[in-house]
Design a protein around this nucleic acid. Structure first.
Lengths: 117, 117
DNA sequence: TCGTTTACGTAAACAGTTTATGTAAACCAT
DNA sequence: ATGGTTTACATAAACTGTTTACGTAAACGA
């Protein structure tokens, strides 16, 4: 109530979602969409919320680009679900994107006068 | 030649430009647009490129929101330029945005299994 | 006087979110 | 068996903030 507005802003995940997905699959072999979303939420202690409207388009992009591969199977809860794995190309892309992310955040840190000066 | 394509990607600055501007003004008192852009480029050792098409809209947003204040003066090179200062509201917003940025990057770091586990 | 630099400005295209809905099947309780 | 909840995927519209590409105008130097 009162004025507990939640400004979503420009998108808290912007740019990072793809690395997060690729890395999750690299660490866990095979996961379906909602499992990936839960994993990211849990590992970030609820800081990163992966909305389904961002999740599925991202998975489709990555599969179209050949960075991940999906197959239809049955989930633990007995529903049909698409299980993804990272490909060799995906691992390469992941390494590159990890470096880019580190370089970018280090650069911002420098400008902001934070750690890693 | 060959294949030296430069993929700009989704927007290297996405989300961070506003904090970077506010912080620059907090550290340097008074600057005009291009000075801010140069400062960010230099301090990041050329990693962060602030395009004018992102810079000016951002400055206008911030001024409209009352986070910065601008005045027309003459620059060192004798051109008319808009000199900005951060406001009290801007400083508050900066503190909040700094915290958000740290929280966000720490969360991503955790999920990616990097430092600050 | 012509080309370059400084400084600001903006519009169109693009990308990746958020928000809101929808489908469908499985499960549970009544 | 029926109705409500959960699981899982899907997509469209709205939004935001970039990138790319121009355009203006004045100052400066050759």
């Amino acid at each position: 109530m009162t004025t507990t507005e939640r400004k979503a802003g420009a998108g808290a995940l912007y740019g990072t979602l793809e690395v997060l997905i690729l890395n999750s699959l690299k660490d866990h072999g095979t996961l379906h969409g909602l499992e990936i979303a839960r994993l990211i939420r849990d590992r970030s202690e609820d800081v990163l919320q992966v909305e389904e409207g961002a999740l599925y388009p991202a998975l489709h992009r990555l599969e179209r680009q050949g960075l991940i591969e999906g197959e239809w199977h049955i989930s633990e809860k007995r529903r049909r679900a698409r299980f993804y794995q990272i490909t060799a190309t995906g691992k390469k892309a992941l390494r590159r994107e990890l470096q880019d992310w580190i370089q970018h955040t280090d650069a911002v840190s420098k400008v902001l006068g934070l750690r890693k000066a």
